[in-house]
């Protein structure tokens, strides 16, 4: 009997977690943020529940500032799969004019992502939100359980997590409490790309290098995806060969200069990289424990 490869072990574990969520929670939802991790998660969910149609809806918390290519990709994929897609926007935040340029990355994220996610979960009474976060992304994520309990106010209590041995998950919760479930907990960035290649999973073209209009700002290359990004004095739009290692709100996501236009080239570039994946994410640098703090407040 041949032992399962590292990737097949990860795949089986994730499928197990997805099925466990569906079997033990009343109203689960799959958080879909359109990036490579979400693409892998969606692919695994299709596998886990095959031959059934995806038995849970997708939820995208839209800040209104995602790359246009991401939104187009999202709508096309949802239509192809034939699943329910819920798009939630924090209308109050939008009405108050919150945006990443004038409000700052911190407030924008708090209102348009964290508060918006809480609104959406409360509105639809979801008791389990499955997301594609991985423990290798960030130090406080490395500490999180696979079934991570949130209070009725969506708070995470990192100092008092339930033991989680083997594959035995404590899925008991009180009314109002909910779970964040992380089937990709044990995957690394390299595993995700290897699996994308192995399973031929489609990802947003922004991951591949192409000539794109970028502006140098605060030491990062920001792609000017639409006219809402006003140029500061001295800034010019250049067309450079760039791609993205992670995807978020376009004003908060740094591009990297690259010639990698194929999956093997992307994978080779990632293996040679000496900086971490989330380095290009502005919101991670809002202070030392900033991810932990955001997570405590309900951020994914």
């Amino acid at each position: 009997m041949k032992p399962l490869s590292h990737l097949r072990l990860l795949e089986a574990e994730s499928i197990h977690i997805l099925r466990e969520t569906l079997a033990t929670c009343e109203n689960p939802v799959l958080l879909y943020s359109i990036g490579k991790d979400s693409s892998v998660l969606l692919h695994l969910a299709q596998k886990a529940f095959h031959p059934a149609r995806l038995p849970l809806p997708l939820l995208h918390v839209d800040t209104g500032w995602k790359f246009r290519e991401m939104i187009a990709f999202r709508d096309r994929r949802a239509a192809e799969i034939g699943c329910d897609l819920i798009v939630h926007v924090n209308r109050e935040g939008q009405a108050a004019g919150i945006n990443p340029f004038d409000s700052g990355s911190r407030l924008h994220t708090d209102v348009m992502k964290t508060a918006a996610l809480r609104q959406a979960l409360d509105l639809h009474r979801f008791d389990a939100a499955i997301g594609g976060a991985r423990r290798d992304e960030e130090k406080s994520r490395a500490k999180e359980r696979i079934f991570s309990l949130r209070s009725a106010g969506h708070r995470w209590d990192p100092k008092n997590q339930r033991p989680e041995p083997w594959r035995r998950f404590n899925t008991r919760k009180r009314p109002g409490e909910s779970f964040r479930v992380f089937p990709l907990s044990n995957w690394t960035e390299a595993d995700v790309w290897d699996y994308v290649e192995l399973e031929k999973i489609e990802v947003v073209p922004l991951y591949f290098a192409a000539k794109r209009p970028v502006v140098q700002r605060d030491g990062m290359l920001i792609m000017r995806d639409d006219e809402r990004m006003a140029l500061r004095p001295g800034e010019i739009v250049e067309h450079r060969n760039v791609r993205f290692r992670t995807l978020g709100c376009y004003p908060l996501t740094g591009a990297i200069e690259s010639e990698a236009t194929t999956l093997p080239q992307i994978i080779a570039e990632m293996r040679a990289a000496r900086v971490s994946e989330r380095q290009g994410r502005l919101i991670d640098h809002d202070g030392g424990g900033s991810m932990e703090q955001k997570k405590q407040e309900g951020y994914f």
């Binding site: 994520r141 490395a142 500490k143 030392g288 424990g289």
Partner: peptide, 10 residues
């Protein structure tokens, strides 16, 4: 400090 990721730990 590379591994102790919680604020309380640090």
């Amino acid at each position: 400090l590379l591994v102790d990721g919680l604020a309380a730990e640090r």
